[in-house]
């Protein structure tokens, strides 16, 4: 029982971060059909900028805000300088552009910051909370709560604001959206900015637990992509479900099967799911546009 609770919380915490990355993937994918492999770099920027801003003397909230702003600026630049100019290229070409961008961002981070690992202090102390005999980190609750707040905020934005509706309209049918006067370029830029902000917040929340360095983005992008696909890409609910599921799979695989094969269990499940449901768990059975 103790072990079960322990693994559950470990899995949910990791899964929440995967979910945020997957959500970023989904947002950009919805607006542009681009799979943005630089998504993990936003998470890296969130953590690294906060670390260095705090070293420079800023308090945590300001440092975190600065980190989100840096990530958003990076996201907008990525859109303006790499995605816009490559508009109309094939899916694979666009994937490679974003991979190039992720290598570039990582390379720049390595120069601007450094190559070492860094930690952030936990927001509200390191003293574990006892729950049914398991030790839960207060920071885990921050991650889970933060992720939940983001998901809720995003949902409200999409459902309740005009801008959010414009994003959804663009996702549904770009041409029609343009015809009714939506500037789809702005919508796309917005998608990149929001994705970057979500990723950065995830990075800030999780750095006190997992540590960060200039190179943490690649693996997160991979896992986030897998999570988005598991849930069915283009579906925000699917992204969150996929992320949490992936985190739980890894945690329980590490605890009960083999810690070295935990990444494998997750991908094995993805393969099996896709063999059975070629559109992901919650994917739309839509026509492909390749």
């Amino acid at each position: 029982m103790v072990e079960l609770v322990q693994l559950l919380f470990a899995g949910l915490t990791t899964g929440a971060v995967y979910a945020l990355v997957a959500l970023g993937f989904t947002l950009i994918f919805q607006a542009s059909e681009v799979v943005n492999f630089a998504q993990g770099e936003f998470v890296m920027l969130g953590g690294m900028v906060t670390v260095f801003a705090m070293k420079a003397g800023l308090p945590l909230p300001l440092a975190a805000l600065l980190a989100v702003l840096v990530a958003v600026a990076t996201g907008l630049l990525l859109h303006r300088l790499a995605i816009e100019p490559a508009k109309g290229a094939t899916v694979v070409t666009l994937i490679i552009v974003t991979i190039g961008a992720s290598i570039l961002i990582r390379g720049l981070a390595q120069i601007v910051f450094d190559k070492q690992f860094h930690a952030l202090p936990a927001f509200t102390g390191d003293e574990p909370i006892r729950l049914l005999g398991a030790a839960i980190l207060p920071q885990s609750l921050w991650v889970l709560g933060g992720a939940a707040a983001i998901v809720l905020g995003l949902w409200l934005f999409m459902e309740r604001t005009l801008l959010g509706k414009a994003v959804r309209a663009t996702a549904a049918n770009r041409l029609a959206a343009e015809l009714v006067g939506i500037d789809t370029r702005v919508v796309l830029a917005l998608a990149f900015a929001v994705s970057a902000a979500i990723g950065a917040v995830g990075g800030i929340l999780v750095t006190p637990i997992t540590l960060t360095s200039y190179a943490v983005g690649t693996l997160l992008a991979l896992k986030g992509f897998a999570a988005a696909m598991l849930g069915g890409i283009g579906n925000p609910v699917g992204a969150v479900v996929g992320g949490l599921l992936l985190g739980l799979l890894e945690s329980f695989a590490a605890g009960w099967i083999s810690s070295t094969y935990k990444d494998g269990v997750a991908f094995l499940v993805i393969l099996l799911v896709l063999f059975a449901l070629p559109q992901g768990l919650l994917g739309r059975r839509a026509v492909e546009r390749v």
Partner: peptide
């Protein structure tokens, strides 16, 4: 199709890599 094919092949590659590592 498309991205689903991408993630499935990705998973396949990662599984092979994982066996070699583990």
């Amino acid at each position: 199709k498309g991205h689903y094919l991408a993630v499935a092949t990705l998973g396949l590659g990662i599984l092979v890599h994982l066996v070699l590592v583990s």
